[in-house]
């Protein structure tokens, strides 16, 4: 691998790389928004329902154990959500992102000092008031830590989504593997790593601001 040629490859193709990075980011953001809108309310819901808790956390764990390439493959023949392209990729990414968000929401909401919850109940707060005014604000940092983990996973897994025609930075990696070109692989891998580090840093910053000691 010659750094010189890789650098000039990057400069020659910077518009394409930037375009793919934006595609990649779009894929991740859409998947994360959907995963948050499913995972956080579901996590709040299962706090009160032990039977559902096992099922929800179990199902989310199972999705996580399926190898990503296999999951993309499984989804292709499924009508409406499957097929080739971005939509299928987003479904798979949501399934992957769900577990850390769901689990952290649940852990955050249940891991609160029992004395605080006892006081809340004893002062005549309703269940809903306890959930939204006590549990949720106190769990926010933990929930955000889950979102942060999920985002980093999603940025990585999204590179594989190129295998089913979803575009993004994975396109360079797959092409690079096929053509045995290090420069092409790096054109996908480096921006993806930079995105992951950036997301980790920014969400980590937010997490620390929300932490209540």
């Amino acid at each position: 691998m010659n750094p010189q040629t890789t650098w000039s490859f990057f400069m020659d193709h910077r518009d394409e790389i930037l375009g793919a990075t934006l595609d990649h980011l779009t894929l991740v953001i859409i998947a994360m928004i959907i995963a948050i809108f499913i995972g956080v309310p579901l996590g709040m819901f299962i706090v009160q329902r032990p039977a559902l808790r096992t099922i929800a956390l179990g199902a989310a764990s199972i999705f996580q154990t399926i190898p990503s390439l296999a999951l993309f493959g499984f989804l292709i023949p499924i009508p409406f959500i499957g097929g080739i392209g971005k939509r299928t990729a987003i479904v798979a990414l949501v399934l992957y992102a769900l577990l850390p968000i769901l689990r952290n929401t649940y852990v955050g909401l249940t891991g609160i000092d029992p004395a605080v919850l006892e006081a809340a109940e004893a002062m005549g707060m309703t269940r809903a008031q306890i959930l939204f005014r006590v549990r949720f604000p106190l769990a926010l940092a933990v929930i955000l830590a889950g979102i942060r983990t999920a985002t980093i996973i999603t940025i990585g897994v999204a590179t594989i989504a190129a295998a089913i025609g979803a575009g993004g930075l994975g396109t360079f990696i797959f092409r690079g593997v096929a053509l045995v070109s290090d420069s092409l692989i790096l054109a996908g891998a480096i921006p993806s790593a930079v995105l992951a580090l950036l997301a980790d840093f920014l969400l980590g910053l937010l997490e620390r601001r929300l932490k209540v000691s």
């Binding site: 000092d113 004395a115 605080v116 006892e118 006081a119 809340a120 109940e121 004893a122 002062m123 005549g124 707060m125 309703t126 006590v134 604000p137 106190l138 209540v212 000691s213």
Partner: peptide, 21 residues
């Protein structure tokens, strides 16, 4: 109604159980 009952009864516990946020 448990909510009405509790709003009329003050409650203090060990470690206070103050809301940290």
């Amino acid at each position: 109604d448990p909510i009405r009952l509790r709003r009329g009864i003050g409650y203090v516990i060990q470690e206070a159980g103050l809301f940290p946020h």
